[in-house]
């Protein structure tokens, strides 16, 4: 069975950062990333023009 891509992403990112991931952390970290993914999906569904500016720093 193919591995859950979210879980795979957590494992890969940990490896890329040099973080030794303990087994008991993986499930919770995967759940956390799954929640972020759902939020990101909601944002991605919103149509933006290609010219829409990035807002890395906000000044009110």
């Amino acid at each position: 069975m193919a591995k859950d891509p979210i879980e795979q992403a957590v494992e890969t990112a940990a490896e890329l950062h040099g973080l030794t991931l303990q087994a008991e952390w993986l499930e919770a970290a995967t759940t956390a990333l799954r929640t972020v993914a759902a939020a990101a999906r909601l944002v991605e569904e919103f149509p933006l023009e290609d010219e829409a500016e990035y807002a890395p720093v906000f000044h009110a």
């Binding site: 990112a13 990333l33 944002v43």
Partner: peptide
């Protein structure tokens, strides 16, 4: 730890939104 795996594209999209 979960946040370390967030793709840059998600963040960029959120900042543009």
């Amino acid at each position: 730890i979960g946040g370390l795996a967030i793709p840059a594209a998600w963040v960029a999209r959120a900042q543009r939104f």
